[in-house]
C-alpha cells in the first residue's frame, strides 16, 4: 500500500472505523501512528510514548462513533495523544524543559566572523532538487539518523509542521508551546537538517 493512496478518502476511512472494519483500522494505524508518536515523543520517552499511543488507539475504538469530523481525523487523534500525555505528566509532576532562548544553532553560529559576516560560508551546491536528493537512499538513511538525534521538542515540532503539515496554531495547541517558541524549535531543527545535507553533499558521508 502506498502512503499517498491512504489519503484519498478520509471520510470513507472514518465510516469504516465507525463500522468497526478491521482493515480500515489497520490502514488508519499505519497512516496516523507516526504523527501520534511525534506528539507523544514531545512529552515522553520512547517506551512510554509507544505505550501511550497504543492506549490511545484503544480509546479510539470506543470513541470513534462520537467523532464529528469538525477538526479532521489527524488533528483529532493528535489532540487525544497530547491531552493524555499532558495528563500523564501532570500526574507524575514532570515538566518538559526546553531551551527557547537562542534561535541560532551553535554549529552554525560558529561559522560567522565577529563582524557578523560568514567566515565559513555555506558551500555552493549543484542545483539538485529535493526530489532528486530524495532518490538517494544513503541521504535518506542519513536524514533518519539525524532526525533521531534531534532533541525531542525540535523533532516533534518539525514532524508535525513539515511532515504532517499541521498549521502553526494546531502545533502550538498540541505541543503546548507559544507561537514564538514554535518558531525557535522549527528554526533550530531546520538548521540541523541544513548542516546535515551540506556535509552529506560535500563529503558523501553522513
Amino acid at each position: 500500500m502506498e502512503a499517498a493512496n491512504y489519503q484519498t478518502d478520509e471520510e470513507q476511512l472514518i465510516e469504516g472505523l465507525k463500522a468497526a472494519n478491521e482493515a480500515d483500522f489497520q490502514m488508519a494505524v499505519r497512516l496516523y501512528t507516526p504523527g501520534m508518536m511525534a506528539v507523544a515523543r514531545f512529552y515522553l520517552d520512547h517506551g512510554a510514548a509507544e505505550d501511550m499511543v497504543q492506549d490511545c488507539w484503544l480509546a479510539v475504538v470506543n470513541a470513534i462513533h462520537s467523532f464529528e469530523g469538525r477538526s479532521g481525523l489527524k488533528t483529532w487523534l493528535h489532540r487525544i495523544v497530547a491531552n493524555r500525555a499532558k495528563n500523564y505528566l501532570r500526574k507524575h509532576q514532570r515538566e518538559v524543559s526546553t531551551d527557547f532562548s537562542e534561535s541560532l544553532d551553535p554549529d552554525l553560529a560558529r561559522r560567522f566572523a565577529p563582524n557578523g559576516r560568514w567566515a565559513t560560508p555555506p558551500s555552493l551546491r549543484s542545483n539538485e532538487s529535493a526530489e532528486a536528493l530524495m532518490e538517494n537512499g544513503a541521504l535518506s538513511d542519513c536524514l533518519d539518523k539525524h532526525l533521531s538525534h534531534l532533541p525531542e521538542a525540535q523533532r516533534s515540532a518539525l514532524m508535525l509542521y513539515e511532515a504532517h503539515q499541521h498549521k502553526s496554531d494546531d502545533v502550538c495547541n498540541i505541543l503546548d508551546v507559544s507561537a514564538s517558541n514554535l518558531r525557535v524549535l522549527l528554526h533550530r531543527a531546520r538548521q540541523k537538517i541544513f548542516l546535515m545535507v551540506e556535509t552529506f553533499q560535500e563529503t558523501g558521508e553522513c
Partner: peptide, 20 residues
C-alpha cells in the same frame, strides 16, 4: 545560497519520513 539550501532541506523533510 544559505536560504536556497535551507529551502531544499525543508522540501526534503516534507517528502521524508512522515510515514516511517
Amino acid at each position: 545560497t544559505f536560504i536556497g539550501s535551507l529551502r531544499t532541506s525543508l522540501e526534503l523533510m516534507r517528502g521524508h519520513s512522515s510515514h516511517q
